[in-house]
Amino acid sequence: MKLRTYLNDLTLRALVALQTFAATEPVRLRALLTSAVLAVGFLVPALANQNTAQAIASVGAVVLPIVVGETARSKVTPV
Rank of each mutant, 00 (worst) to 15 (best):
A48S: 02
N51Q: 12
V59N: 04
Q50W: 06
L43N: 01
V76E: 14
A14L: 10
V76K: 14
A14P: 03
A53G: 04
A48R: 04
P78K: 06
T20A: 10
V67Y: 03
P45E: 05
A46L: 00
L43V: 03
V68H: 01
T77Y: 06
N8Y: 14
T20F: 01
A53L: 03
S74M: 12
G69E: 01
S74P: 05
Q19D: 11
Y6R: 14
V76C: 08
T52S: 06
L7H: 13
T34W: 01
F21Q: 04
R4E: 10
A23G: 04
I56C: 03
A61G: 09
K2G: 09
P26V: 02
L10P: 14
S58V: 00
G60Y: 05
P65L: 00
D9G: 15
Q50P: 01
T52G: 02
A72L: 15
V68P: 01
T5N: 13
Y6V: 15
G69W: 00
G41D: 06
A31E: 11
V62C: 07
A57W: 01
A57M: 00
T11C: 13
L3A: 11
V68R: 00
V68E: 07
L38V: 13
A17C: 14
A14Y: 11
E70I: 05
V63M: 02
A22K: 05
Q19P: 10
L29T: 07
